[in-house]
Each structure stands twice: as structure tokens, then as C-alpha cells.
Amino acid sequence: MKDVFKIGGREINSRLLLGTGKFSSNKLIPEVVETAGSQVVTIALRRVDPAYEEENIAAYVPGNCILMPNTSGARNAGEAVRIARLARAAGCGDWVKIEVITDNRYLLPDNYETVKATEILASEGFVVLPYMSPDLMVAKKLVEAGAAAVMPLGSPIGSNRGLRTKELIRILIDEIPLPIIVDAGLGRPSEAAEAMEMGAAAVLVNTAIATASDPVAMARAFRLAVEAGRLAYLAGPGETQEFARASSPLTGFLRD
């Protein structure tokens, strides 16, 4: 049976989404994307800095990828909407990762503003992937608001602390009828595999690959981990058995 992964009606052939920030050189990006096998690649939109001329990141992303601009830098729904519209006007397509952060200590997303931005952008025809703190009620509101997937954090952005929010993410996987993509905090391939084994539809990884000593090798490691985790999930792992305990039978009285 083919294992199809769809977002916003589009079939995606890789469950490893890749971020392009923090690389020592943008020149690494094409090889990293190719090795990771990623089809969805995130980028950011920034005001230009007169001090130095950066290259256009889009030029480094292979042409068959879906470019997904994030709204990083937005502190409220209005700013996120503005960034998304600018990115689309600039030729980026319909996909957008909503990221609204008002907390500079932990870089945790503002779920309330995220729901508002999702609602507005979905109604404008965007394929909206909101980044959020895992919360069931918020995830339900994102579904109603028209999100194409829900992207809970595993731990704070860039922290490499892994799947700390595991129990909450498990609830989202069980209850939300959209792909759950674990975004932020995955520091090691084993953590990506764990998320996939639990039934996450995909993971988004940036820092762990970009800041590895050998980003290309790490991209390959994550690719294999995501595939292994997915396979394990599909294979239906045996449940952890509860310890047998002596107890009197409860159904012995039934005879028919």
C-alpha cells in the first residue's frame, strides 16, 4: 500500500521538512536539501540591511521544492498576515508557515495570534501551516480556522532539547484530523524517529542539521530516521504490555 502524505491537497514525497537558517554558508543548502530528500523548504522574509548585500536564498533551493516562507519576526497576527502577503506577492507561492513570537526569552509562539492569522490567511487561499505550542483546544481552533496542517513544537526553537512535549503531541496526533508536523526542538535523528513512530505526519528540522559539524551527513541521518520512524509506525508496533497482576476474574459469571 502506498503511503501517501498530502498537505493542502498536494502529495508530498518527503516527510522531512527542512529549514534554511543558520547554515555556515548558503552554498551548502543545495546538497543538504538533496541529501535530506526534502520537498518542502522554509525560508524567511527580511528587510534588507544596507550594511551588506546577502544573496537571495531562493536561488539555492532546488527548483522542484515548495518554498514555504515563514512569518518570523511577526509579533502579532496583523504582521504575520502582512509578511505572508508580501511573500506571496514576491512570487513565493501559496504556502506559509505562521510563526508569531512575542516572547524573546524562550521564543515560544503566541497561540492566540497564530489562530487569528491562520483564519485570515486561509480565507485568502493560503496553504497555512501554523507553528504552535501543543494545545488541544488551540489545535481544534486551527482546524476550524482552515489550517492545512498543525505544527506543534517539540521543545523551544533552536534548543535541540528533543521531544519534550511528547504527551501533548500524542494527544494532537490522536485527536486532530490534520497532519501533525513536529516543528522545532528536534536535536537528534532518534528524536525525529520517535516523533514519526508516534504517528506524526512529518517533522521540520533546521538547527540540528544546519549547526552539525557535517550538515550533509546529518541531513542523511535525519532522512533515514524519519523513514525508519514512519515505517515503524506503519508496521504497528506492539503495545507495551501492562504487568500481569493477580486479580480475580470479572467475567467468570457469564455462561452464554
Binding site: G21, I29, I43, A44, L45, V48
Partner: peptide
């Protein structure tokens, strides 16, 4: 004046 840069 804006441009696309690396981001996660």
C-alpha cells in the same frame, strides 16, 4: 525593501 533569507 525586503528579501528572502534563510529561515526555519
Amino acid at each position: 525593501l525586503v528579501k528572502f533569507v534563510g529561515g526555519g
